[in-house]
Simulated scan of single mutants.
Amino acid sequence: MLNQPTQVNRRLPDFRSPVQLLRVIVFTQGLALLLAFAPFSIDSSPWYRLGFISMFLQWIALISCLTFSWFTPLLSRASFWQLALLIQGILLTITVGCTIISFWYFQQLAPTLELPALLINNLLICFVVALLVIQLVIMSDEQSKSITAQSRAELIALQARIRPHFLFNTLNSTAELVHQNAAAAEQALLDLAASETISLTEELALCRRYLSLEQWRLGERLKVNWQLPEPMPELQLPALTLQPLLENAVLHGIEPAAAGGEILIKMTQTAQQLQIVITNPYPLQGSRQPHNGMALQNIQQRLAYVFAEQAQMVIKDQNQQFSVTLVLPLVWEQR
């Protein structure tokens, strides 16, 4: 059997982003300074040469960035040698075009220059710069993959830390339920044995099963008010993001109160974001149980690994009401 070729999927820099454009402009200006103050065949002021060379090189750089952004899908799937040839071909072609146009426009300023010599000189410089660009693109791809792998490993580690906590409390609740309704306890365990998922719909389904289990244990003391948008937005998030927040609401808000209380789960959707607010009553300071902030910190860290700075968590404790607000992006660049 013939071995199938490995599919390449490179992560190239976004040449349209302001940060990348600024880096290209700075690098290009540095190259212009180097060429302007180096020995040159034109007998003129280095500052005059700097102005002309800066304009010429920035022209090539910006056109190249635009071209690379157009060819990003092709470049991301190219092998090493294909990537090198494509980058060299793009930069050399743009350099030839810009050289001919510049020579045609500014020939009167330097009548002693000849087009063939100017082309050879510019193409040699472009060839060396293209080698640097190839190396930088490959290094950027390797660094991006390394950061992604590290982030995934840390996300898995955080997920593993919170899962035993969730299972321990769930099994305790199920143990109490066994004495009241064995069939319901069995069904609860089957429901909670669902496979890992990070879809919002599945996370909410897990939350409903968990709250159903707690309602068997607390009875009428636990009331739940769901305020969800229709249709439900398609959002991916780390598993066990909302469930620990509801668990905290039950353990620290509902269970200590003799009369129980209501947990409000409210979602508000905009074009770019989804806001999730979980609110529960919180007893007076003297009757509160010690609050474990591990779950909140764990969730905040996992959201940061997935959404970076686009995700927000706001915690409020006022007027005997405790609320956690999550603001999640509906569109984001995955790591």
Rank of each mutant, 00 (worst) to 15 (best):
E142W: 08
A194G: 14
W226I: 15
A188E: 01
N181A: 14
W226L: 15
Q187T: 08
T95P: 00
L218H: 01
E214Q: 15
V224L: 11
K145R: 14
L91R: 01
I125W: 09
L91D: 03
I162N: 03
F127T: 13
Q215Y: 02
F127I: 08
I198A: 15
A149Q: 14
L118P: 04
T112P: 00
L200D: 00
A117K: 12
I156P: 02
K145E: 08
L132V: 12
I162M: 01
A183Q: 13
Q150L: 03
I125P: 01
L211F: 04
N121V: 10
T201H: 07
L123I: 10
A153R: 09
L228E: 01
D191T: 05
E186V: 07
L155M: 12
T112G: 01
Q215N: 04
L115Y: 08
R209V: 00
I101K: 11
T148C: 12
I198P: 05
Q108C: 01
I120C: 09
Q215V: 00
C207F: 05
I162K: 03
L222E: 01
L124F: 09
V128I: 12
Y210T: 01
V129K: 00
S195A: 15
I100Q: 14
Q215H: 05
I138N: 04
L109P: 02
S173F: 03
V129P: 03
L206Q: 00
L167D: 15
E203D: 08
P164R: 10
T93S: 13
A153L: 11
A184V: 06
V128G: 04
R152F: 05
Y105D: 05
W216Q: 12
A157R: 10
A184E: 08
I100C: 14
I198H: 14
E186Q: 13
I156K: 11
C126V: 06
S102D: 10
T112I: 07
P164K: 10
S146G: 11
Q150A: 09
N169D: 09
E176Q: 15
L218I: 05
A182Q: 15
A130H: 00
L119W: 13
L228V: 03
L218V: 05
A153W: 07
Q150K: 07
I100L: 15
A149D: 14
L155Q: 10
V129H: 00
P111R: 02
L123R: 00
R221Q: 13
N225A: 06
Q108F: 09
A188N: 07
L158H: 01
T197A: 09
A157N: 11
V137R: 06
Q215R: 06
I125F: 10
W226N: 15
Q159L: 05
L206R: 04
Q180S: 12
